[in-house]
Design a protein around this nucleic acid. Structure first.
Lengths: 246, 246
DNA sequence: CGAAGGCTTGATAGACCTCAAACACAGTGG
DNA sequence: CCACTGTGTTTGAGGTCTATCAAGCCTTCG
């Protein structure tokens, strides 16, 4: 039962990385799909699936992850409202990773057929979506850089800076504070660290007066020093207005 | 001075991940651009550039990399003939990373205008290119997984498996052997390891009878055990015929 | 109140890094 | 032809970062 849903998060997300014409905005607003709610830690799409719909996150948080044969988990990406975490399934049949709700979340499922019709009829909308997947890839590159060459503290700081900047670009921060609804184990799976070491790194960052983090809410206490510790440069996010974040 | 060049590597690459119609093949073959040669370690595109052409690797090897403010380098991707390593510059103005020739290489530079004209006139060719960038992103995800959750040996084994599988898909292997023209320092920068540790890990793999590696040529001695050590599953490469590699 | 999940702490072990030096090899110039 | 240089590989020793194991604590929730 396709229905219209609130496209504001999607519009805000697309506008954060692209200038939209009125025509494009109307085209995007006309998208419809099936809205569904997910509980915390519930899988949305699983590795190996071949979905015929793509998922637009409307509210909550999602993350993408892989599980290795030996059982270890690696979180690949964190998604916020307006993201289409599995847009790539439009062109890559088999999912090479899974997608799950991090907290109770709602999402709209848009049939691939509808997306194809839309991008066929409006090539500039195709560019919007293509570009969105390219920014996604740019974020992966930044994660590779941090995983490969940063200390635990630098890497965690980078994650904090990135999520803050992305949320701020879509208007979901509250001053220097934002919701980061992940356990220390989940942060470890995102950063390639053990839970214990995440805990100690968080303590160090608190001790340094860089951040506060409790009950899933993160507060930045010293943006300048945090950014320096993370060696954070928001260029890779390809935001229209990168300085809106500072 | 645009010229026609050998599109065979590109065609082979695209055919490794997609079924091409004759019409699409002809469209791709009609692409022209400027051919240029690069010396080893020469930069092709630099972080911060806003190129108006995209680079198609015809012969040799290239790699993409970032340099952190503290001077550390992280290699993000390894490219083989037929790849278009900076296709994303078609839609993302500023390069968020650099591209360099790993060994003496030749590449064709295709103006963005020509690419845009091509994909406007043939939407299915647009899908080809979009899909290519999505596979690129899938490879980044696999690197994140290995960086975050694998030991040095597992990660190095994964890299060996990946490059082997990709080269084999475009017909550039020689039995169980292929050119991998990287120094141990470069491998370290790709794997997030020190040169010394790469050296010791290579020795361990040689001692285990998994691989041979000298003078830039890699030979796989025991594919089954190598694959197991790497926890390698080629699904993420989204090849049309994933089993051609085994 | 008990159970479960998440957070915190301590102790120990292991993987990997850094520094330093020796070795191998190819290219260069006298 | 041979020193000389530069780059890449190899080896050793010591140190640091992070993982693992194990336990205790705290909060939430049924």
């Amino acid at each position: 039962m396709p229905e219209l849903f609130d496209t504001a998060p999607l519009i805000r997300k697309l506008e954060s990385i692209f200038v939209l014409s009125d025509e494009e905005k109307h085209a995007v607003q006309s998208i419809n799909g099936t809205v569904k709610a997910f509980g915390a830690h519930e899988d949305v799409v699983r590795e190996g699936d071949a979905p015929s719909v793509s998922c637009l996150l409307l509210d909550g948080f999602m993350h993408r992850y892989k599980v290795l044969p030996d059982g270890k988990r690696q979180i690949l990406a964190i998604h916020t409202p307006g993201d289409i975490p599995d847009l790539q399934s439009l062109l890559l049949r088999r999912q090479d990773h899974s997608l799950a709700a991090s907290v109770p979340s709602t999402a709209a499922f848009i049939p691939h057929e509808a997306l194809r019709a839309l991008i066929r009829s409006r090539p500039t909308v195709a560019d919007l979506f293509w570009r969105d997947t390219l920014v996604d890839a740019a974020i992966f590159r930044a994660w590779i850089e941090s995983l490969g060459r940063c200390s635990a503290l630098g890497h965690l700081a980078h994650l904090v800076c990135e999520v803050y900047t992305r949320l701020r670009a879509v208007g979901l921060t509250n001053g220097c504070s934002y919701g980061l609804p992940f356990t220390q184990t989940e942060l470890g799976d995102a950063l390639g660290l053990s839970t214990v070491h995440v805990n100690r790194t968080l303590q160090e960052m608190r001790g340094e007066g860089l951040i506060e983090f409790q009950h899933g809410r993160l507060t930045i206490l010293d943006w300048t020093r945090l950014k320096a510790a993370a060696q954070f440069d928001p260029g890779y996010l390809h935001l229209r207005d990168p300085h809106a974040s500072v």
